[in-house]
Amino acid sequence: MSEKWLRLIVVATMILLVELLCRVGVIPRMVMLAPSQMVVELAEILRTGQFSADIRTTFTNIAISTALSIVLGFVAGLIIYSLPALRHALEPLLASYYAVPTFVFYPIFITLFGVGSASIIAIAVLLAVVSMITATLNGLDRIPRVLRKTAQIYRMSRAKTALLVELPATLPYLFTGVKLSVAYSFIGVIASEFILSGAGIGYAIAYAYNLFENGHMYALILLVLVTVTIVNTILNMIDRRLQARRQR
């Protein structure tokens, strides 16, 4: 509990420090707005609904990308797990996967899917899906052999074993994959919008930057930071609960 408070104090102090530096003019208004002003600006754009369409586009894309990554990653993980030869061959590639700067493939998706949500979702899925595959493989690897033997002792069918023993045993590991899929979907969608798109929060931030509209820009940046923090905190809470059950 005291650690929690300490953390709150650290974060609050940093925000207050920035607030102070902005107020006295050490950080010029041209560079950064005071945090309190950001909040005011955010409330303002949420009230007027000026960016509602962009916000909706972005969060829809993130949701679709997350769902696709989780489902595709899980299924791919199952398939790779059931084919040891394929897995053997893929493993060195999977280990190097995050070394590939995925965003450079964005133009290729544009030629395939056109400019718009489909390309953005494709790039975000490309970024997020591998963490789900890795998490699935990891979870399946770590089902203790004795649990499968136990299912055999109860003379359970293959399907029942998968549903009642293997799935719950892998769940904590799968959730790690879910967490990463969410984070990478956020990064993939917003970064794609930022660099090369005509809609969404990322685009709106880049647009506001180019027009020197610092008020809008910081309001949207704050919106992203707050959303990610909230989502992250909730996921971590669920994660901690799942991990507490994991022993061995």
């Binding site: 650690e3 300490l6 953390r7 650290v10 974060v11 041209m30 560079v31 950064m32 969410v182 984070a183 956020f186 990064i187 969608v189 917003i190 970064a191 930022f194 660099i195 929060i201 990322g202 931030i205 880049a206 930057y209 820009m217 949207l220 940046i221 992203v224 930071l225 990610v228 923090t229 992250n232 905190t233 971590n236």
Partner: peptide
């Protein structure tokens, strides 16, 4: 203690899309 306090902050920073902060970097 410092580690325990910092870890959640760091993991949150890790998962934010850092592109949104690029304008700030450019302005600085």
């Amino acid at each position: 203690l410092a580690g325990n306090v910092a870890e959640p902050i760091l993991t949150t920073l890790y998962s934010i899309p850092k592109v949104v902060l690029y304008p700030l970097v450019l302005l600085c």
